[in-house]
């Protein structure tokens, strides 16, 4: 029984990291007022780049760096369209998602299924010896530990630093921020690109650690789920963890049922659950919002900024 719980918990964490990293990146972009629907594409491109560099014999750090750079480049494209050209952010994000998907499918065709780097679980000394908890939390891949660090870091930057202050200012009230002299454009660019970096890293996690190797559309909608989880998190990194764990938990259940052969719930229902749950979460958030509890959505989200004159 305990073993089952440990197994499920461990896989829950494993399965949630991709969504989590992408969601934290998206929180930064949206906090600054940029809706980035291209996360799925950025994750895919990141995953492919990481896998390809690994396959070519590059060291893991280079693979990670490459994946993040690929995500950043696509994010830069989105930033250029939605900030500089003031294009419709929905369409620009969709275009990025399609483009990223296409690029990864096209360029990744030759290396489907081949595995270069496999970031195996790396038990942390001492910590992993703690009963139950050690096995669940500290017998994971290095990227999981990195995510452990990124969560508090992101929250700290966003809520306890001057940079975070500026980011929130730009996303909530770009006009006021501009009037006191904050560079709205620069901050939005930085946040969008940071979002792309984390999406790329999330992709790398999938292709280097979670299910090593490149597979077409291997994100299977995790980028979109990440965007929904951002709404669920009310734009706070800690609550995004909760959302990501929900997603990871459902995935872990699938593994558990598969591994044990128990089928309490039919597999195809389990497969659907992450998506349905995400929709349910969206309804819940909107319902709470309607009831007067204002979801703290950045007020300038999706609104291009332009100072006339």
């Amino acid at each position: 029984m305990i073993d089952d719980i440990v197994f499920i918990s461990q896989i829950t964490i494993k399965s949630s990291i991709g969504v989590l990293l992408a969601a934290i990146g998206e929180i930064f972009a949206e906090r600054s007022g940029i809706l980035n629907l291209g996360v799925e594409g950025m994750m895919l491109v990141g995953a492919l780049t990481g896998a390809a560099i690994g396959l070519a014999g590059g060291p893991p750090l280079l693979a990670l760096g490459g994946g993040m750079l690929a995500g950043a480049l696509l994010a830069m494209l989105h930033a250029f369209f939605s900030i500089t050209l003031r294009a419709d952010q929905t369409l620009s994000g969709l275009a990025i998602a399609i483009l990223g998907g296409g690029l990864s499918n096209f360029l990744g065709r030759p290396i489907i299924g081949e595995v270069g780097i496999r970031l195996k679980a790396f038990p942390l000394p001492y910590l992993s010896d703690i009963p139950v908890i050690g096995e669940i939390f500290f017998n994971q891949s290095v990227l999981v530990y990195l995510a452990y660090l990124i969560i508090p870091f992101a929250s700290y930057v966003l809520f306890h630093t001057r940079t975070g202050l500026k980011i929130r200012a730009v996303g909530d009230d770009a006009v006021s921020a501009d009037v006191i002299g904050i560079n709205v454009t620069a901050i939005r660019y930085c946040c969008t690109i940071f979002g792309g970096i984390l999406a790329g890293l999330g992709g790398c996690y999938l292709s280097l650690a979670y299910t090593p190797g490149w597979k077409e559309n291997m994100t299977a909608g995790q980028g979109w789920i990440a965007i929904a989880m951002v709404i669920f998190s009310l734009w706070s990194p800690y609550r995004a963890v909760l959302g990501a764990l929900l997603f990871g938990g459902l995935t872990a259940l699938q593994f558990f049922f598969q591994a044990t052969g128990i089928e309490v719930i039919p597999v195809y229902i389990l497969l659907m659950l992450p998506y349905l749950l995400t929709i349910g979460v969206l309804i819940l958030v909107m319902h709470l919002k309607k009831g007067g509890k204002d979801g703290k959505s950045p007020r300038c989200l999706g609104v291009p900024f332009h100072r006339e004159g």
Binding site: F81, A87, A95, I98, G101, G102, N105, R109
Partner: peptide, 26 residues
């Protein structure tokens, strides 16, 4: 060559559409 180049071209088409629209507005 992988047929998924079509998907790339589609994404680029959409971006091209957005870019040309921006150039017509501004």
């Amino acid at each position: 060559l992988p047929a998924s180049i079509v998907q790339v071209l589609e994404g680029a088409l959409l971006l091209g559409f957005l870019a040309s629209e921006a150039l017509l507005r501004f």
